[in-house]
């Protein structure tokens, strides 16, 4: 195998779920939650995945850790395809991966003490003695900022605040100093001030332990701050990918532009310059063509004929949009705020 190997490689992943049958329309078929997604995470890198609800980002997180089987495609961790491993091999590899969930209320067993929760990874993956595990657990508590550690060790999750619980969940995730941590909306349920503490903690742990994060969130601002690279998901596909500042400050895909323009900033010249997409895109889906075209202000005839591939939008920056192939993109196409600033009405300039 050639030189530097990616830590995690998602190769053309597809995940289908059986379609839920409606009350009156018993339907057959499948919902494709993740649709031909390829993504790499390098060592010591943080890759952010942003998208709205239903975009498939949580399914992608579960696929990345092989918690569910892909319908098609491969997950490679340190060059090894996870689907070919035996249960024992997979378990051994799992020591190098961990996950942090959104809801620290649901992800910690309410009947277990904090020290038990934090001791489990050592029980399962190491041959340390009780005493050594105890020492490790107290260390972990200090490391995630829960001190005095001895006091926190004997608490139940319900005796902790949301932020403290998330610290326990993070402690459990970093216990074995994994190479990869998948964090699925880790700060979404937290208040602003607590969120800042947790993000700093994740940062510090990364610089101390040298792991990589696959950081899944709907919050663009948080993802921008914490990620090296970013993938934007829409309807199960990655529509744009690149370095965080390129994607957020110079978005190439109209959907990313819509997302970015939808975020209110603290202080802005104009009070409300929110962009209206073309309605709630309910059922606005077509088997052919670009998945975003029904909401897209720049849709062209060719957008309904074939699906655009990921096209080059700059160094290490790509987007699934035919506009990148047009010789003359609309004048202010790349300017995110153009949709509203140009007209003041929320109508895109055509």
């Amino acid at each position: 195998m050639h030189a530097p190997m990616s830590l995690l490689e998602l190769v053309d992943l597809v995940k289908e779920f059986p379609a839920p049958a409606g009350l009156l329309q018993p339907r057959h078929g499948v919902v494709r939650a993740v649709n031909h997604v390829s993504l790499q995470v390098e060592q010591r890198e943080t890759v952010g995945v942003v998208g709205e609800s239903g975009s498939g980002k949580t399914t992608l997180a579960r696929l990345a850790l092989h918690l569910i089987d892909p319908t098609r495609g491969h997950v490679r961790f340190l060059g090894r395809s996870l689907e070919n491993l035996s249960a024992g091999e997979l378990r051994a590899l799992r020591a190098h991966m961990a996950i942090i969930f959104q809801d620290p209320y649901a992800s910690l067993n309410p009947r277990q003490h904090v020290d038990y929760i934090l001791g489990r990874p050592f029980d399962l993956h190491t041959r340390l003695s009780r005493r050594e595990i105890r020492r490790k657990v107290l260390n972990l508590l200090d490391r995630v900022g829960l001190s005095p550690a001895v006091d926190f060790a004997r608490k139940f999750p319900h005796q902790l605040s949301g932020g403290q619980r998330q610290r326990v969940a993070i402690g459990r995730a970093v216990a074995l100093e994994p190479k990869l941590i998948v964090a699925d909306e880790p700060v979404s349920s937290l208040d602003v001030s607590v969120r800042a503490q947790i993000l700093n903690l994740l940062r510090d742990l990364q610089s101390d332990l040298g792991g990589s994060y696959l950081f899944i969130s709907h919050d663009l601002s948080v993802v921008h701050s914490i990620s090296d690279r970013v993938a934007v998901m829409y309807e199960g596909e990655i529509v744009e990918e690149g370095r965080a500042p390129d994607v957020f400050l110079n978005p190439a895909h109209p959907y990313t532009q819509l997302l970015v323009a939808s975020i209110p900033e603290h202080l802005k010249e104009r009070r409300v310059d929110f962009v209206a997409g073309k309605g709630d895109a309910i059922g606005a889906k077509d088997p052919q063509g670009c998945i975003f075209r029904l909401r897209c202000p720049y849709a062209m005839p060719r957008c309904s004929e074939a699906e655009p591939p990921l096209l080059n939008a700059g160094e290490g920056h790509s987007a699934r949009c035919f506009l990148l192939e047009e010789t003359l993109p609309p004048a202010n196409w790349v300017l995110t705020r153009a949709w509203t600033d140009a007209t003041g009405s929320g109508e895109p300039p055509v």
Binding site: S161, V192, S193, R195, A196, Q197, L199, N200, R203, L220, S221, V222, H224, S225, A244, P245, F248, L249, V260, I263, E265, H266
Partner: peptide
């Protein structure tokens, strides 16, 4: 402190300011 702890899209932070305590 509250303003300092919040992040905005156009001004990412490498370090977040926090409010100690609860």
């Amino acid at each position: 402190a509250l303003l300092g702890a919040s992040v905005t899209l156009l001004e990412p932070r490498s370090r977040f300011r926090t409010i100690p305590g609860a």
